[in-house]
Simulated scan of single mutants.
Amino acid sequence: MDSCFHVLIQALLHCAPSSPPPLPATNCQGLCSGGTASRSDPLTSAMGNLCCCVQVDQSTVAIREQFGKFDSVLEPGCHCMPWFAGKRVAGQLTLRLQQLDVRCETKTKDNVFVNVVASIQYRALADKASDAFYKLSNTRSQIQAYVFDVIRASVPKLHLDDAFEQKDEIARAVEEELEKAMSAYGFEIVQTLIVDIEPDEHVKRAMNEINAAARLRAAANEKAEAEKIVQIKRAEGEAEAKYLSGLGIARQRQAIVDGLRDSVLGFSVNVPGTTAKDVMDMVLITQYFDTMKEIGASSKASSVFIPHGPGAVRDIATQIRDGLLQGSSVAKH
């Protein structure tokens, strides 16, 4: 019995080709390592052919053909494969999420060339595995072509600054176009991201300089406004101080006039025979000598040369009196 089984195995090994026939070129073969049909050594293939069984890994589906024609999609697990009835596994298709990074060079509306980097996340649909396996020969090239088309149609309508601000709108346009195109081939577009927009290095440097100049200009304007406010407040303070100083001087002079009037009236009453003129002359002489005393007593006073003599007081009194009389006559007219 053992010798018969050994002879049968040898016959199968002899009939089996030395190298398995190549699988038809499919889109999944260029996408990931799990996208190709798995091959085993001749002994394992012989045992599989003898037992008419085939294994499909998790997150993978197998395409079964009968005499070169599509027969069915095999889910993960162990399946019967009657090779003598012309059935075979044409290949396997991964259902895992895959990512394709596309770099597209285009220009903006203001004639700035940029590199737009887009990341496309996609996967094959299990219920459309036959379409994904047979309809496309190179899925990555197909997706890349659609991405180029949409980006080069969208970005030239935008200025450079607007392109940075509207990255989500560009990604949404790419995703909608890919979803419409790839759904017919059994693929689902899960997510589309505009990862980066890279202008030329000279453009980056110029943008940074423009930004820095704008910030410096804004800082200068703010500084000028601050200095303006300080000067206005200082002027308002000086005006208010001068106003209050004028009020103080006016009140001081009013107090002096009131005091002089009271002094003249009191002196005239207490000293009979004196006139108001005599009293005013005496008051002026007193004020004159008090002023001289203050000038001499001040340590910081400069040298002051004034005409001085017995008649100087009379001259000062006459000048003051004449000024008062002229002011009174002007007020009457």
Score class of each variant (00 low, 15 high):
Lys109Pro: 03
Gly266Ala: 04
Glu236Thr: 05
Gly309Tyr: 05
Thr139Asn: 13
Ser3Glu: 15
Arg123Phe: 06
Phe5Met: 11
Tyr122Met: 14
Glu227Leu: 08
Ile320Asn: 02
Ser245Lys: 08
Gly86Tyr: 08
His308Lys: 13
Lys300His: 08
His6Cys: 06
Met1Trp: 04
Gly259Arg: 01
Val73His: 06
Leu158Tyr: 09
Glu169Gly: 01
Arg251Met: 04
Pro24Leu: 08
Gly77His: 10
Gly323Ile: 04
His79Pro: 12
Ala145Glu: 14
Ala85Val: 13
Val174Ser: 04
Asp101Glu: 12
Val271Asp: 02
Ile285His: 03
Glu198Ser: 12
Ala37Phe: 13
Ser130Cys: 12
Val56Glu: 08
Cys51Gly: 12
Val257Leu: 12
Ala218Asn: 05
Arg217Asp: 14
Ala212Tyr: 04
Lys242Leu: 10
Pro20Ser: 12
Cys15Ile: 12
Glu201Pro: 00
Ala206Gly: 02
Ala129Thr: 14
Leu31Glu: 10
Arg123Asn: 13
His6Ala: 09
Ser137Gln: 15
Gly91Trp: 04
Gly35His: 03
Ala62Met: 15
Thr44Asp: 09
Gln326Asp: 07
Gln287Val: 01
Val112Met: 05
Met1Val: 07
Ala213Trp: 00
Arg215Asn: 06
Met47Cys: 09
Glu65Pro: 10
Arg96Ile: 11
Pro156Gly: 09
Leu12Val: 10
Cys51Val: 11
Gly273Val: 00
Lys167Asp: 03
Ala171Cys: 11
Phe67Ile: 06
Ala181Leu: 08
Ser19Asp: 14
Cys52Met: 13
Met1Ala: 10
Arg215Pro: 00
Arg172Pro: 00
Met292Leu: 15
Asp57Lys: 14
Ala126Trp: 02
Gln58Val: 15
Ile151Trp: 01
Gln99Ala: 11
Glu75Asn: 14
Lys223Gln: 14
Ala241Leu: 03
Asp131Asn: 13
Val330Tyr: 05
Arg140Pro: 02
Gly259Trp: 03
Val269Asn: 00
Asp101Leu: 14
Pro42Met: 13
Leu193Gln: 03
Ala11Gly: 11
Met81Ile: 15
Leu178Glu: 01
Ala62Ser: 13
Tyr146Pro: 05
Gln326Ala: 13
Ile320Ser: 09
Thr318Tyr: 14
Asn111Pro: 07
Leu247Asn: 02
Pro22Ile: 12
Leu325Val: 11
Ser329Pro: 01
Gly248Pro: 01
Ala173Thr: 06
Val56Phe: 04
Arg88Pro: 05
Glu240Ile: 07
Gln55Cys: 10
Val264Pro: 00
Gly311Gln: 10
Asp281Met: 07
Gly30Gln: 09
Asp110Cys: 07
Val155Cys: 07
Thr274Pro: 00
Ile229Phe: 01
Met47Pro: 02
Gln254Ala: 04
Val257Gly: 00
Val114Ala: 12
Cys32Ile: 14
Ala25Trp: 09
